[in-house]
Amino acid sequence: NIFRVLGDFSHLASIFILLHKIQQLKSCSGISFKSQVLYMLVYITRYLDLPWTSSPYNFIFKVLFISSELYIIYLMARAYKPTNDPNLDTFHVEFLLGFAGLLALLFPYKYTILEVFWAFSIWLESVAILPQLFMLQRTGEAEAMTAHYIAALGMYRALYIPNWIYRYFSEPTHKVDTIAVTAGILQTILYSDFFWIYYTKVMRGEKFKLP
């Protein structure tokens, strides 16, 4: 459906915006390395089924997400390392890993490796933006490209919510994926404050600056 396709392309667009920002400005300042590593972990643990993916659409996106994330991490850790300031990226990710690990172990759909890792990846993704938002809060402002990146990344999961509603009514089984939906709503709520400032500042041509 249209919401899901828009969501997936928003996700892909966010990655292109981030890569464009890093290469255009020859800098990864303002980007949380910790959030990027968390996303890498999200892709690895969710796409363990990559070799068995039957849909070409999903297969291409999975490969694109994994490979582009690897490239982003390479750029931040090697090519543009001097522009990456660890002193601003101080969020304690062990809390996020503990949160996702605990929920994945307590409430997986099934106790299989694939299912537990899948649940872990869903919960981890829901909070993986926090080191990035925390960094933004410390610096108090962001380059336009960084703001566009976060907005597109947040829009992706927000668009999955109408997709789930649409699927609930259009598919005969009327099933709800409680893990994905709960985590998706949590993820979108975490972005809400950012979305508001993005809407009131950046979309009106102003700089992204916290009040």
């Binding site: 899901r4 849909s55 999903n58 996106f61 759909y109 997709n163 598919e171 089984t173 099933k175 994926d177």
Partner: peptide
Amino acid sequence: GSKEEFKDEL
């Protein structure tokens, strides 16, 4: 199964 169908999402 229901959630298998949802695994078709990214």
